[in-house]
Design a binder for these strands. Structure first.
Lengths: 204, 204
DNA sequence: TTTATATTGGAACGATCGTTCCAGACTAGG
DNA sequence: CCTAGTCTGGAACGATCGTTCCAATATAAA
């Protein structure tokens, strides 16, 4: 029983993920996927029951590869807010590498076009946001342990703030070519997080 | 020559706007629009050359009605950051009124599914973001004149930060039913803006 | 009422959608 | 060589898309 799959089959999900990422689920046709992945219609349908299941696999792959890589400084690092800064710097260098309009975040893009009744997709989006928030909680806790005095509730709230703000940054990146604005946004966010974590600040 | 258009024709763009807003441009079919607007196919095509032009009219209507109303405390008020707070409060009450998943911002949702080569649509999105930023610049300038010491560049940067963050808030509102998280986000954003505007804060 | 215009609802068009199917090409082992 | 299993490329399906068209209907002016 020959098991060797062709090279194109190995990259099926990766290439499909990029296509969905750039153009959006509903715009991408099976013909587009055949062209962009180099896999025939028959090949795609032997691996996946349909377009939606392939898309779900792309969302999973997005988590396993893109997010795991980019989010590592926050998710597995030990540097507190500095890890968040490194995460944002990586996002910005990706944007600059595109040299034009960004493609945003696959999950964020999907959020704006999802029917809430598609619970399967919706849950994947929610898991993504929960993952980001958890990472921020982790990094902010490290920072707080280093001398801050934030309560768990305050850390939780601040992590949500960071997650939602970054969501906006990636949404906006799809309609601008100005890397400076995104860079300054990143700087401001880090500034805010640092101020909130520093014990020096005292409300009257 | 009878000029009176039927009541349904008057509301054509309004109802189409809500349908696009909730479900997204590519998901909404002409059949959906006929059902949701109560206007016949023929009627729609006498008023607009096609689906895309109707959508553009919806984006314009969104600016004229929704944004003009919600953004008024920022855009025409004289209350500085307090105007921004009122704007965010209105957004939140709209979200709570939906009692479920929010529908986000029509422009934000479109951002995630637009092909950058559709320059007509893209420019409308950019004009929206520019409008929001301009409003925030206005409100922050009022606040700064009231005793702050921000430079024009700092105000500009802070306005961009607010615009992008709010964008994230609305994107996230489509995948959550938790109004508290959005409320806290709003509070945090206002807190940050106030801190930056207050002259009392001195970097070492 | 008659006449002219506005609007409807639905049939119908070609294009394209997601999906199915399969004859032929390819690959590896005997 | 032959055989068995895998994959391709494209034809073809029914459904639905945006769009066009028009006979029938409703409306308002004369």
């Amino acid at each position: 029983m020959p098991k060797t799959k062709s090279a194109s089959r190995e990259a099926l999900v990766d290439n499909a993920m990029r296509t969905f990422w750039k153009n959006g689920y509903h715009v991408v046709s099976m013909g587009d996927l055949v062209r962009e992945t180099g896999v025939s219609r028959g090949g795609i349908y032997t691996d996946f029951p349909g377009k939606q299941e392939l898309f779900h696999a792309c969302l999973d792959r997005y988590q396993e590869t893109v997010i795991t890589s980019l989010f590592a400084p926050v998710e597995t690092g030990e540097e507190g807010i500095e890890g968040i800064r490194k995460y944002l710097d990586e996002l910005l260098s990706h944007f600059r590498a595109d040299a034009g309009f960004g493609i945003g975040c696959l999950v964020g893009n999907t959020t704006g076009q999802i029917d809430p009744s598609e619970v399967g997709t919706l849950r994947k989006l929610q898991e993504h946001f929960a993952r980001l928030k958890k990472g921020f909680v982790r990094a902010l806790s490290q920072e707080s342990d280093r001398g801050g005095r934030l309560t768990k509730a305050e850390i939780d709230e601040l992590a949500s703030f960071a997650m939602i703000s970054v969501q906006g940054m990636w949404s906006y990146s799809r309609s601008t070519t100005d890397a400076d604005v995104l860079q300054k946004f990143s700087n401001d966010l880090i500034t805010y997080l640092e101020e909130r974590c520093r014990p020096s600040r005292q409300p009257s």
